[in-house]
């Protein structure tokens, strides 16, 4: 028997609609603020129960607040996602059809790449094969900016990768479409887009950067957890969650 929703749940859900995705600290802060505002009990370790209550009401409506991890910093995030493809869900007006075609091409470029990234040049070139509408260079650039602003892609030095929001919401789609090409992280067993790869040609396991950081933290000499070869990559620092500014 799930709990009933009150205004603190509703306000939290509204914030999720506005933000799309929040990290763990932000979610905890929102939870606290929503409870304070509507004078309801806030138990810091009960965030997941609080979200479960919302999800029980969202489930029949094809929506969900879904938990996932960021490949970039290893932090837990919460995203509000749509879970069903229907005639109605396809009426979404945020992007035109030809823009969605380009977005899917971008996903494909990223998924099949070694690095989990696609350069703007690669994406621009892929527009040549589009049959729906020829996109000008400036239009493509404008669209990529919008996709970054709306938190579907991230961009670093002209290289685009899938955002945490995109991975969380689109994972079922990516699994259906690219089952064969997907890489899995040897440590956490989730899909890996951006990761380090063992250079032993008979091994080639993949590990997310944050998983690398955690796994090799106290090891004097980094060795592959599968083949025991020397791990030749730079070991990233463990990402410290930014202390809250207020």
């Amino acid at each position: 028997m799930s709990q009933q929703m009150d205004n603190s749940h509703r306000k939290f859900l509204q914030s999720m609609m506005t933000n799309g995705i929040v990290d763990e600290q932000r979610a905890a802060m929102l939870y606290q603020q929503c409870c304070d505002t509507y004078k309801t009990k806030c138990l810091p370790d009960k965030l997941n129960d609080f979200i479960d209550t919302i999800n029980s009401k969202l489930q029949p409506l094809f929506m969900q607040i879904r938990k996932g991890w960021s490949e970039e910093d290893g932090q837990q995030h919460y995203a509000l996602v749509n879970v069903a493809e229907t005639d109605i869900s396809r009426m979404s007006s945020d992007y035109a059809d030809y823009e969605l075609v380009l977005f899917r091409k971008t996903i494909e470029l990223i998924v099949v790449s070694e690095t989990g990234q696609a350069s703007s040049t690669d994406i621009l070139n892929s527009t040549d094969t589009m049959t729906t509408k020829k996109l000008k260079k400036s239009e493509t650039e404008h669209l990529l900016n919008r996709l970054v602003r709306d938190k579907w892609l991230t961009e670093k030095r002209g290289e685009y990768s899938l955002s945490t929001r995109c991975v969380i919401e689109m994972e079922p789609y990516i699994r259906t479409m690219y089952q064969e090409q997907l890489k899995m992280c040897h440590i956490c067993h989730n899909i890996a887009f951006q990761c380090q790869i063992c250079e032993n040609p008979t091994c080639c396991i993949k590990i997310h950067n944050p998983c690398v950081a955690r796994y090799f933290k106290n090891k004097s000499e980094p060795r592959c957890p599968a083949c025991d070869d020397f791990w030749p990559h730079e070991i990233p620092e463990i990402h410290q969650p930014l202390s809250q500014s207020k």
Partner: peptide, 13 residues
């Protein structure tokens, strides 16, 4: 009213 935006389900798979 806040608006709901999503990517999954907005195109034909």
């Amino acid at each position: 009213a806040p608006t709901f935006h999503y990517m999954m389900g907005s195109f034909h798979t």
